[in-house]
Simulated scan of single mutants.
Amino acid sequence: MPRAPSVSSIQAEIDRLVNLHGYDKAILIQFASFVKGKKLQLTLPELKKAVYRHFQVSSTPKLKASGSFQMATDGMNLSLSQKESWKKIYRRWIGVLPDEDGVTGDNCINGINIFDYDLPWRVFGLDRHTATDNDIKAAYRELSKTYHPDQPTGNPDIFNRLNVFYRSLLGKG
C-alpha cells in the first residue's frame, strides 16, 4: 500500500503550483485539507526540518549555536521542547502554517490572524511588487471603515495593529 504524502511534501507541491501557475494558495490548501479529510498540520519533525532549512543547520544543538538563530529569536521567549515555540519560529521566519491559512474569526483579516503574523501586505490584500502608496492608503481606509473603534464593528486592538502595518508599509514605522 502506498504511503500517504507528508504535509511538507503537500505544502511543497502547493508552493510549486502557486509559483508555476499563480493559483490561489488558500484554495489549494483548502482542497488538500478536503481530500485529506482534515486540516493540514505540520508535525513537530516537519516544523523542525523547515526551521533547520531556513537557518541552514541540521539539528537542534546546531540551531541553538547558530548566531543568526540567536539574533533572530532574541526576546521571543522560546522553549524548543515545545511544539508551540517551533510554530512561533515558523510563523515569524518561514510563513503561514498550513492549518492557519484561510482562517476566519475575530482577529482574522484576509485569511490570517493578524496577531500571529506580521504580514501587512497580505492583511491589506495588496501585492508588494505592484502596490502604490495610494493603493496602501485606499486599503487602509477600507479596513478602517470596519475596525475603527468608533464603528459598531470596531476593535481598538485590531485598529492599532492596522495602524502599525499601515506605517510600516508607507515606511513611516
Rank of each mutant, 00 (worst) to 15 (best):
V35Q: 12
V51C: 11
G75K: 08
I112K: 06
L63P: 09
E84A: 15
G154S: 05
P149N: 07
R91V: 13
K145G: 15
L97Q: 09
R161K: 14
A138P: 00
T132P: 00
M71E: 06
L162P: 01
S59C: 12
P61Y: 12
V123E: 03
G67R: 11
N160L: 10
P45V: 14
T130S: 14
V35K: 13
G37C: 11
K49E: 15
N113D: 15
T153Y: 00
N134L: 12
Y52C: 11
D150I: 07
Q56D: 11
F69A: 06
K48Y: 03
Y147Q: 12
V51M: 11
K145D: 13
M76T: 12
I112T: 06
R53V: 07
S79N: 15
D99M: 04
K48F: 07
F159S: 04
L42Q: 08
L40M: 15
T153M: 08
G105Q: 06
A32P: 02
P120F: 05
I136K: 08
K49A: 15
P61I: 03
G67S: 09
D127K: 01
L40E: 09
T60A: 14
I158C: 07
W93H: 15
L40C: 13
E100M: 06
P149Q: 08
L143S: 01
Q56C: 11
D99H: 06
Y117S: 12
S85G: 14
K83P: 02
G37K: 07
A72D: 03
N155T: 01
V123G: 08
N160C: 08
T146A: 09
C108K: 01
K49Q: 15
N155A: 00
G154N: 06
D135R: 02
Y117P: 08
I112Y: 02
P152D: 10
N113P: 03
L40D: 11
Y52P: 10
L78F: 13
D150F: 03
R92V: 02
G105W: 02
K64W: 05
V35Y: 09
E142V: 04
D101Y: 07
M71I: 12
D133W: 00
L126N: 04
R53S: 15
Q82P: 00
L97D: 09
E100N: 06
G95H: 01
D133R: 10
D106P: 01
